[in-house]
Amino acid sequence: MESVWMALALSLKVAGLAAAATTILGVAVGFLLARASFPGRNVLDTLLTLPMVLPPTVLGYYLLVLLGRRSALGTWLLEEFGINLIFTWQGAVIAASVVAFPLVFKPARAAFESVDGQLEQAARVLGTSNTAVFFRVTLPLAWRGILAGVLLSFARALGEFGATLMVAGSIPGKTQTLSIAVYEAVQAGQDDVANTLVYIISAVCVAVLLTAGHLAPGRIARR
């Protein structure tokens, strides 16, 4: 039973950090693609959406190639900072972030595009700096759409299996998340453990989806 709670704690930690990372990156990139116009914008959009349709094992393989010891980046990280990401929970965070990224980035871009540009113009004429316009007008008007995406990305990161297994492996208490623990339990014939894990992960996902539905865009937040 203790291993179940360790897996849950690890899953929440990995999913929480992945959701935080995808939020910051997804909002920044979504805003950039909504407002800036540059050649290759649609190609970039397609590339960034790819993790949504590619099999997670393929993404995991890409990450292994990119971050592994034989890659330039992996060697540099290890030699300069002593950082090895493969078979660590930090590697699981990266895998979950890549998989969940389009779930924030896509709705963030749509939410920014739906903000009336005239409101931003009005704020600028009133003397508000461009940075302040983003935080006082654009973001408050877009945040409901973004938040729904953030919750979905959290749920997706929580359920991540394929890419995480490839990059971080399945080390109990270290990199074995809930969804991987379910697989291991079933393989080992521990049906009662599998049952508990399945109920926990289902309950968390239902709660997240209910919250996301409640925050669906369309209604304007009081603040």
Partner: peptide, 14 residues
């Protein structure tokens, strides 16, 4: 430093 009154007012809805 000019004031601007937009046609549909552009009040901040939030």
């Amino acid at each position: 430093q000019v004031g601007y009154l937009f046609q549909d007012y552009a009040l901040f809805p939030h």
